[in-house]
């Protein structure tokens, strides 16, 4: 039984992975919205960046897309459906501080939780799931750390662990919140390699980052956020793209 309680619907034909229209989001208890009327569309298989300083609304935007925050108004469509119906198609990498790293769970099991969405309630992960986990651990050079408690990993390793969980989900769209934040050189290079692999696999990737230089990583489009608003849109590699509503 799926966590949403219903069958996962197939993507609607011609629907983009993400379409957001006039989105307004406020944090719980806050009067002022954190996002004001955001409209944008991300096509398959684009790689886009949400850039802006801390507090600009990038993370809030990603949280609204994955249904962690309820919009005050506006509409979000994922593959032509409302966000609550296609959890398995979207993988989310939160910021590192949002997880209890002291919890007694080891890396392999944490990564395995990325497969839960494919099974839902009462079903245990299969041998195939375990194999998928091992593949991703190897891809991110984490095999030797698989039996470590997650709190015993370094910052960069923890970042890779969360990315491993997002990858093992085999989602069609990945939302990565500050994946390059405070990581070592090795992890940074691995992340870039993984992003290139995802591009070859035609996955849609949205990255929130406050790093202006973007580490030389090519993006199809860049959405600059400032004070909860989408300022403008730049398209470094495809200037003629006109996917955004704004």
């Amino acid at each position: 039984m799926n966590y949403s309680g219903c069958q996962h619907p197939p993507p609607r034909p011609d629907a983009p992975p993400l379409r957001v229209h006039d989105l307004v989001v406020a944090h719980e208890g806050a009067r002022q919205p954190a996002l004001h009327g955001i409209s944008l569309t991300v096509e398959k298989p684009e790689r886009v960046a949400l850039i802006g300083p801390n507090g600009a609304g990038k993370s809030t935007f990603l949280k609204a897309v994955v249904h962690l925050l309820k919009p005050r108004s506006g509409k979000i469509d994922l593959f032509g459906h409302s966000p609550g119906t296609c959890h398995h198609r979207v993988a989310y990498l939160p910021q590192r501080g949002e997880l209890d790293w002291d919890f007694p769970v080891h890396l392999r099991r944490m990564v395995l939780s990325g497969r839960y969405v494919r099974h839902g309630w009462f079903k245990r992960p299969s041998e195939k799931d375990q194999q998928a986990v091992e593949r991703v651990l190897a891809l991110l050079c984490l095999e030797d750390l698989a039996d470590r408690q997650i709190g015993e990993l370094s910052g960069g390793q923890q970042q890779r662990a969360m990315l491993a969980r997002a990858l093992v989900q085999e989602a069609e769209m990945l939302l990565l919140d500050e994946p390059f934040n405070a990581v070592d050189d090795h992890t940074r290079k691995l992340l870039i390699k993984v992003l290139e692999t995802l591009r070859q696999e035609e996955k849609t990737v949205i990255i929130a980052t406050h790093e202006p230089e973007l580490e030389g990583l090519p993006f199809d489009r860049i959405f600059p956020f400032l004070e909860g608003r989408l300022v403008s849109q730049t398209a470094p590699h495809r200037p003629t793209s006109s996917c955004a509503h704004e």
């Binding site: 799926n2 209890d100 839960y116 009462f122």
Partner: peptide
Amino acid sequence: ASVFKEMELVSYDPSYAQTIGIK
């Protein structure tokens, strides 16, 4: 036991659990 994997996940990463649809 029947919800063990979900209870474990929710206990250390409730946000991720929510994003995959766990209530």
